[in-house]
Design a protein around this nucleic acid. Structure first.
Lengths: 344, 344
DNA sequence: ATGCTTGCCCGAAACGTTTCGGATTGGCAA
DNA sequence: TTGCCAATCCGAAACGTTTCGGGCAAGCAT
């Protein structure tokens, strides 16, 4: 292991100056900086992390706390989350650790313990609830964190999110513009912030397009096939006021909807139109449906990089404005939408 | 953050003595040690990891390198692996980091890079192949590592494993003792060390029980339902020499076998007996099969603790004998085994 | 000449811990 | 008394880095 001292001796410089040269400080002459960098590269100099952390007072470690071991089918997604965050933090020369709470533990106790041990610089929070207690807890203690998602339109903490209100508005408008007047939204788990945002967007767009609120149906539940299936069956139980179009919270729900519609003898898009939001989940790709789905699309896997950067920035104490990002989202029109049958 | 200095000042002792008291050194009087520990507890003293690591020269970080993002259905298992290792290393005050290689990278290059950066004390290696190149690579460079599994009966590196040879012998004997003379073993992926060990155990037990080797069938493939299904179909293609009993490498394979047998109109255990090895995978529990399966059982989830301890020991340079462990395994006899139909 | 920048550099301290070598007791045997 | 040993303690150095407060020269204006 080459150290700053090794470099400084070989170069006839002080340790101070070598350090400053490598770290891009101003008062180092260009020629010296060149020499230093060249030798550093030649000797494969790598700054000692422990020493650097000792003086900075930071541990260089950030964490993700899960309330329990994820169960199928979400577990497949979690490994992508963990892998993605891990990779991006490692690129930022930080360590990312996963902490899974015991069944019996209160999740806030886990945070308390980790903070107290002083070994963690900050946290990533995923799957935020509306008024998430974790946010309040960490904010109270001035512990840096970043949210995947957010509470409200303009929060006072770092986050990465997509515009869920807009997502729902877009999907709703695609259907109303095709002539649909009775729409059911099969959404995610009640209490999740993004679920609430999408419901609001759905109702706002419907109102703006002149739909009565009693022409709207809204179902919440876990984002799995069976929820899509059951909610669909329920939506079509009373054929008098059955919807002519459906919105799925994600493509996994859409899968369940397809199953239910097939069982009910309804065809997509002739009898029922269907749109969904598409996170590009590997086990439910929107383009392999038959017919391929019209979706708003934003890759969940692109979240980890901005999340890592925002948390790193928060730990360094950068200003909030640079730590709040909103991911892109695009509408992909495919063959799952048609005018409602009455209008044909 | 309380430091050693804080403690020493309040106690009227030197920093040295406080450190020695806390770390259990000999030349500290019992009364002093008591006082020190009491105050340390009261002030929630936590030794600063970075400082400790700086003097020890260790980073306190160990890693797991995966060649690529795990795909279903194994991804569900991976989150348990990562979570389990993570938890146990954190208990040992070490950090565990996951590193997922890019598609294009050679896996050994990833190890090379991580070692060179000097930030990693050791590695966990899972799913070892026979003559695994990672083992050779790390051993050559004197980098500590621990294997989940092993190459041969008594390797010269730290490992945790179960006795796969014995597992296969036990399962085979259960069947031969019930009178079966034609047995098919639907095993895991060719090249895996444990798959080879089990095949050897299978053949050894069969030979010891006086079975001809042409009465044995052996299939390899990924440990998923479809492999169990296809291999079963193949095993029963020629009814003249069809097996009367099957051994499944794990319960996921057993699921596929059940599907195939049902399709072939064969009942368990009246027409075909079935035994399996049971890792207690959450998506395929041996006792909920119909009939419940006779299995050799050893919980995969109990591997993470010994793996973490062995690697920690290896990093500290402890002697090999304490770093090699073999997990327990028990036979659970249930209703999936009966005498072969000819014998009835 | 004097004072003031500006550019480049350095020594020393600091971060919190472990450890090496030695110091100070008191007790006990010679 | 002297010497020795064990028990208990301490100062100082070390780990590798960043950073604070300066120093020294050259250039410039006064």
């Amino acid at each position: 292991m080459t150290t700053l001292k090794d470099l400084s001796q070989q170069l006839g410089l002080s340790v101070t100056q070598v350090s400053r040269a490598l770290n891009g400080h101003a008062d180092v002459s260009e020629s010296t900086r060149e020499r230093v960098k060249a030798l550093a590269a030649e000797l494969h100099y790598q700054p000692n992390v422990s020493a650097r952390r000792l003086v900075s007072g930071k541990s260089g470690i950030v964490g993700l706390v899960l309330p329990h071991l994820p169960l199928p089918p979400e577990d497949g997604q979690f490994i992508r989350i963990v892998g993605g965050l891990s990779a991006h933090f490692s690129r930022l020369r930080m360590q990312f650790v996963l902490h899974i709470a015991e069944e019996s533990e209160d999740i806030l106790d886990v945070y308390r313990r980790l903070i107290q041990s002083g070994a963690i610089d900050g946290f990533v929070i995923i799957e935020p609830q509306v008024n998430d207690p974790r946010v309040a807890f960490l904010r109270d203690r001035d512990v840096p964190f970043v949210l995947h998602g957010r509470d409200c339109a303009t929060p006072d903490y770092p986050f990465f999110d997509i515009d869920n209100h807009a997502v729902a508005r877009t999907l709703t408008r695609v259907l109303t513009r095709a002539g649909h007047r009775r729409i059911a939204f099969i959404n995610g788990l009640d209490g999740r912030a993004y679920v609430a945002a999408r419901e609001a967007g759905f109702r706002a767009a419907a109102a703006a397009e002149g739909l009565q609120s009693d022409a709207l149906m809204h179902f919440t539940g876990e984002m799995v096939e069976s929820h899509g299936l059951l909610a669909t069956v329920e939506a079509f139980r009373d054929s008098a006021c059955a919807p002519t179009a459906l919105i799925a919270g994600n493509t996994r729900i859409a899968k369940g909807i397809f199953l239910a519609l097939a069982a009910l003898g309804l065809r997509v898009p002739q009898d029922v139109s269907l749109v969904a939001h598409d996170d590009i989940l590997h086990d439910a790709l929107s383009h392999v449906f038959d017919p391929p789905l019209t979706v708003t699309q934003s890759a969940l896997d692109l979240s980890w990089e901005p999340l890592a950067h925002c948390l790193a920035g928060a730990v360094e104490g950068r200003s909030l404005s640079s730590l709040q990002r909103i991911g892109a989202c695009r509408l992909i029109q495919r063959a799952s939408v048609a005018p409602p049958p009455e209008a044909a």
